Deep mutational scan, measured.
Amino acid sequence: KNAAQIVDEALNQGITLFVADNRLQYETSRDNIPEELLNEWKYYRQDLIDFLQQLD
């Protein structure tokens, strides 16, 4: 998997990933985040941060 796929997957589930103060953050109206997504975000944290910062 790559960062773009993970960001896309999150968006499809109503979750927006973004970077604030060099930390990976998310916004969602969901009550909870599936644990497998959280684990994936932790595992790919630096890739996601790098990818999202390139988009800014």
Rank of each mutant, 00 (worst) to 15 (best):
K42L: 13
L24R: 00
Q5M: 09
L52A: 01
D50Q: 11
N12R: 15
A20G: 07
N32T: 14
F51G: 00
L48S: 00
S29L: 12
I49T: 04
E27K: 15
N2H: 11
N12G: 11
N39D: 11
Q46P: 04
Q46S: 07
R45P: 00
D21P: 01
L11P: 01
R45K: 11
Q13T: 04
E35M: 11
Q25Y: 15
Q25N: 07
A10E: 01
Q25L: 13
L48E: 00
R45L: 14
R30V: 08
D21N: 11
Q5A: 08
D56G: 14
Q25K: 10
D50M: 11
D50K: 12
R45I: 10
S29D: 13
L24K: 00
W41G: 00
K1V: 05
K42V: 12
E36L: 07
Q25H: 13
L52F: 09
R23I: 15
R23W: 08
E27Y: 15
D21L: 06
D56P: 12
N12D: 10
E35F: 09
Q25R: 11
A20L: 13
E36N: 10
Q53A: 10
R23N: 14
Y26C: 07
L17H: 02
D50G: 06
N22E: 08
Q13S: 07
R30S: 08
D8E: 15
T28C: 05
T16Y: 15
D47S: 12
D56F: 08
L37G: 01
K42E: 14
Q5T: 09
A3T: 04
E9S: 05
I6Q: 02
P34C: 04
L48N: 00
V19P: 02
Q53T: 14
W41N: 00
S29F: 10
N32Q: 12
D47P: 07
E35A: 10
I33L: 08
E9Y: 08
L48Q: 00
F18D: 02
R45M: 15
A20Y: 12
A4I: 05
D31M: 09
R45W: 13
D47L: 13
A3Y: 03
D50S: 11
N32A: 11
Y43V: 12
I33A: 03
T28D: 02
V19M: 06
L11H: 10
V7M: 05
Y43S: 09
L17D: 02
E9M: 05
S29Y: 11
Y44D: 01
D8W: 15
N2G: 10
F18K: 07
V19R: 01
Y26I: 06
K1N: 04
L52W: 02
E36R: 09
L11G: 05
Q54G: 13
E40L: 13
I15V: 09
I49E: 04
Q54C: 10
V19S: 03
L11R: 14
Y43T: 12
Q54P: 09
G14R: 04
L37C: 03
L38R: 06
L55I: 12
D8P: 01
A4P: 06
S29E: 14
